[in-house]
Amino acid sequence: MVFNIVLYGLAGSLLAVSLAKDKKKSKMALKKAWKAFENILPQFLAILLLIGLMLAVLTPQAISSVIGHESGWAGMLLAAGIGSVTLIPGFVAFPLAAALLSNGAGIAQIAVFISTLMMVGVVTLPVEMKYFGKRAALTRNALALVMATVVALIMGVILR
């Protein structure tokens, strides 16, 4: 919340400086901002609908039943899969992960879930491809999946 205020403060004050310096340029900046937003809005809305549906199905209970107690490698894979496909905001994901941990999920499973959640975005791939192209976007996501797994395995060993 504090961060949102900082973000608005920053955008607001920079816009004020911009307005003071050059009205026409500022107007152009706002126009560009709107155009960029309008351009990507359909994808954003689709993503949000998809996320809503997924989160409604994948309740904490459902997630914990598959990556919970002694789920081992299968659990790792499932955790990576769920983390890659879903897009849960951090302020929901961390408490969820904490709850899963206290319910007996393994550290490595939780770490891979958190890491893939953050780095891999299957749902957002269309948006990513729109800006980076297919090749770069797919490469980034594939690498992120591998790296997230490696990081999680190391964390699982160290934090055990």
Binding site: L7, Y8, L10, A11, G12, L14, L15, S18, S26, M28, A29, L30, K31, K32, A33, W34, A36, F37
Partner: peptide, 8 residues
Amino acid sequence: PVFVLLGL
């Protein structure tokens, strides 16, 4: 704010 910053 993100898009305003982007425009600026």
